[in-house]
């Protein structure tokens, strides 16, 4: 049968708390959520923790395990060493309610601000026609189980409370991308909206969200980057950028004049090479078709995540 293993669990509420030590029996084949349940049943009946399906489908049991954002039900105990202490803490980006339960209402507010699907006018229910190949692109993002691990890990808001107002986070970038790629969605301003209202510009593509996604959605490659690149032509055109910097806003309302011989601005917002453009004028959205991982990124040919010292990260100013 099982062996006793050492666990450290954060207990407390919004007024404070600390890590407490527990020795709990662990059996072969168990996951971290099983241990939390055993703690509740045997030692701490009031230990607060969210869970539902226990099969990685509902995204309720998000916590940080040894500092990594994980689903409790999908983290096998066998991934730790026999004598390893397992430390379980609540998601850091959101305010603690109690123990491992955090207030994730930030996400629901952002969801509410993201414009909903706009049904095509004049198409009756039952008359929707779409090709599988076209719905698949959006379907990838609809796999999202809303565990909010991507929101939690994103450094734009992790430890940066001040960015929360202007930044919707990866979960809602993929929502915007999903609607942008929806074959019948009637709005055509999804990416502009993401840029202007969701704070897409804050994202500097460190791919942390993709790394923690339990559904393995390629958040950065397939949603964020394509959206950025489709706004890139206007937003990050070096000349337009310079124009924005040197002209007053009232002058910008007009056609932006092109100053001759302007030097390229900051490097990190620029691609080394343009990605392949398909015949329809769009880019391939999947990295499978590209020769390198992380190929279609403004950093050019790079391995991700990039070492921090090689990042020339300019914190964007709040968008006007």
């Amino acid at each position: 049968m099982g062996t006793k293993r050492h666990f450290r669990v954060w207990r407390g509420d919004e007024s404070g708390g600390d890590i407490q030590d527990y020795d709990v029996e662990v059996n072969e084949g168990e996951v971290v959520l099983d241990i939390i349940h055993r703690l509740q049943a045997t030692q701490t009946p009031d230990l607060a923790c969210r869970w539902n399906c226990k099969a990685g489908k509902c995204g309720s049991c998000s916590v940080e395990i040894n500092g990594k954002p994980r689903l409790g039900c999908m983290t096998r105990m066998s991934t730790f060493e026999e004598d390893e202490t397992v430390t379980i803490t609540p998601l850091r980006t959101f305010p603690v309610i109690r123990d491992l339960v955090t207030d994730v209402s930030f996400n629901y507010e952002k969801a509410r601000e993201t414009p909903a699907f706009a049904p095509p006018p004049g198409v009756a229910p039952g008359e929707y026609r779409m090709q599988q190949v076209d719905v698949e692109r959006s379907q990838e993002f609809r796999k999202c189980i809303e565990c909010f691990l991507c929101q939690n890990t994103c450094h734009v808001v992790r430890d940066h409370e001040e960015n929360k107002e202007a930044f919707s986070g990866p979960r809602y970038f993929i929502r915007a991308a999903e609607l942008d790629m929806h074959p019948l969605d009637d709005r055509d301003d999804r990416k502009q909206y993401a840029q202007a209202n969701q704070g897409l510009g804050f994202c500097n593509i460190t791919k942390c969200c993709t790394e923690v996604c339990p559904e393995h959605i390629k958040i950065t490659d397939n949603a964020i980057i394509p959206m950025k690149e489709r706004v890139v032509d206007k937003r990050y055109d070096p000349l337009v950028w310079l124009g924005r910097k040197i002209f007053r806003r009232d002058e910008l309302e007009q056609e932006v004049p092109t100053p001759a011989g302007a030097a390229a601005p900051f490097s990190s917002a620029r691609r080394a090479e343009l990605p392949d453009i398909r015949e329809d004028g769009k880019m391939n959205v999947t990295e499978i078709t590209l020769d390198t991982q992380g190929g279609p990124s403004p950093f050019g040919d790079q391995e991700f995540p990039m070492p921090a010292d090689r990042l020339s990260y300019h914190k964007p100013e709040p968008q006007d």
């Binding site: 909903a116 699907f117 049904p119 229910p125 929707y128 779409m130 599988q132 719905v135 609809r142 929806h182």
Partner: peptide, 15 residues
């Protein structure tokens, strides 16, 4: 009818 209605809410079923 109930399924078709879901498409007007944005559902994306396999085709």
């Amino acid at each position: 009818e109930r399924i078709w209605e879901l498409e007007t809410y944005g559902a994306l079923f396999d085709r």
